[in-house]
Amino acid sequence: MTAKVGVITFPGTLDDVDAARAARLAGAESVNLWHADADLKGVDAVIVPGGFSYGDYLRCGAIAKFAPVMGEVIAAAQRGMPVLGICNGFQVLCEAGLLPGALTRNAGLHFVCRDIWLEVASTSTAWSSRYEAGADILVPLKSGEGRYQASEAVLDELEGEGRVVFRYRDNPNGSQRDIAGISSANGRVVGLMPHPEHATEALTGPSDDGLGIFYSALDAVLTA
């Protein structure tokens, strides 16, 4: 069985091609999903990629959550389908209510574009099981609104339930508690601000550390 990973394209999406390529490098079949179609085409997992969906008007991800495809993603996530949101995709998942909190303007109000080290804080999700707890991975970050914020109660809940998946080693954007990525309560939905799809080959990225995320999803699908 070859797992099918759907990658959504919104107007303004930039990283859908890279996300699809990362899925293929891990051994999956990538399936293009169009924002205006309420059809997931029988995929086993979904990636909501980075970019500037609908031009980031209103708020980042605020319009994308109303796209026909997102209604299907929300329903599938509630049934347990693995869903990954990267950068703008993380923002979309928060706006859609699949993940708590919000991504706001970076501390200092500057766009951050550089390779960063992340700590793998949880290996119990559908998108992080291939890593060792506490491992360091090197991936690119490129965002102007990547500062994760939530209420203290939500932050405590995320910490207490082991739902902080990735942390910044050197927090570049002021995210609360150094949070770079979080998961849903069942560990099937993950959002992170840095870009693992740009770290899949040592030749073109800073590392191939990001591949573990996509291998993890295949494991989750094929062993379900």
Results as ranks from 00 to 15, higher is better:
residue 4 K to M: 02
residue 7 V to N: 03
residue 10 F to Y: 11
residue 12 G to I: 04
residue 12 G to T: 03
residue 14 L to D: 03
residue 15 D to K: 09
residue 16 D to Q: 04
residue 16 D to K: 02
residue 18 D to L: 00
residue 21 R to P: 00
residue 24 R to N: 01
residue 26 A to V: 02
residue 26 A to R: 03
residue 28 A to N: 05
residue 32 N to C: 00
residue 33 L to G: 02
residue 37 D to Q: 06
residue 37 D to G: 00
residue 38 A to G: 01
residue 38 A to M: 00
residue 39 D to V: 00
residue 41 K to Q: 08
residue 42 G to A: 00
residue 45 A to V: 00
residue 45 A to E: 00
residue 48 V to I: 15
residue 48 V to A: 10
residue 48 V to E: 07
residue 52 F to H: 12
residue 54 Y to E: 04
residue 55 G to N: 13
residue 55 G to T: 12
residue 57 Y to A: 15
residue 61 G to P: 13
residue 62 A to S: 15
residue 65 K to R: 15
residue 67 A to H: 11
residue 71 G to C: 05
residue 71 G to L: 05
residue 73 V to S: 10
residue 74 I to R: 13
residue 80 G to C: 12
residue 81 M to E: 01
residue 83 V to Y: 01
residue 85 G to A: 13
residue 88 N to K: 12
residue 89 G to P: 08
residue 89 G to N: 10
residue 91 Q to D: 13
residue 95 E to P: 07
residue 96 A to Y: 02
residue 98 L to M: 13
residue 100 P to H: 11
residue 103 L to Y: 04
residue 103 L to E: 06
residue 106 N to R: 08
residue 108 G to Q: 03
residue 109 L to C: 07
residue 109 L to H: 11
residue 110 H to W: 10
residue 110 H to L: 14
residue 112 V to Y: 10
residue 113 C to Q: 12
residue 115 D to G: 14
residue 116 I to W: 04
residue 117 W to N: 15
residue 120 V to G: 11
residue 120 V to L: 11
residue 122 S to W: 12
residue 123 T to M: 09
residue 123 T to L: 09
residue 126 A to T: 08
residue 128 S to C: 10
residue 129 S to K: 14
residue 131 Y to S: 13
residue 133 A to E: 15
residue 137 I to A: 09
residue 139 V to E: 10
residue 139 V to M: 08
residue 141 L to S: 15
residue 141 L to G: 08
residue 142 K to I: 10
residue 144 G to T: 02
residue 149 Q to R: 14
residue 150 A to F: 09
residue 150 A to T: 08
residue 153 A to Q: 14
residue 156 D to L: 06
residue 157 E to H: 10
residue 157 E to A: 14
residue 159 E to R: 14
residue 160 G to F: 04
residue 160 G to E: 13
residue 161 E to M: 09
residue 163 R to L: 02
residue 164 V to L: 01
residue 167 R to C: 03
residue 168 Y to T: 03
residue 170 D to R: 09
residue 171 N to W: 05
residue 173 N to Q: 09
residue 176 Q to L: 14
residue 179 I to T: 07
residue 179 I to M: 06
residue 182 I to D: 03
residue 188 R to E: 07
residue 195 H to S: 09
residue 196 P to T: 10
residue 196 P to E: 11
residue 196 P to A: 05
residue 197 E to G: 12
residue 197 E to L: 12
residue 197 E to I: 12
residue 198 H to S: 14
residue 199 A to F: 05
residue 201 E to F: 05
residue 204 T to V: 14
residue 207 S to I: 06
residue 209 D to A: 13
residue 212 G to K: 11
residue 212 G to Y: 09
residue 214 F to Y: 15
residue 216 S to Q: 08
residue 216 S to F: 04
residue 217 A to K: 03
residue 217 A to P: 03
residue 218 L to V: 03
residue 219 D to M: 02
residue 221 V to T: 02
residue 224 A to D: 12
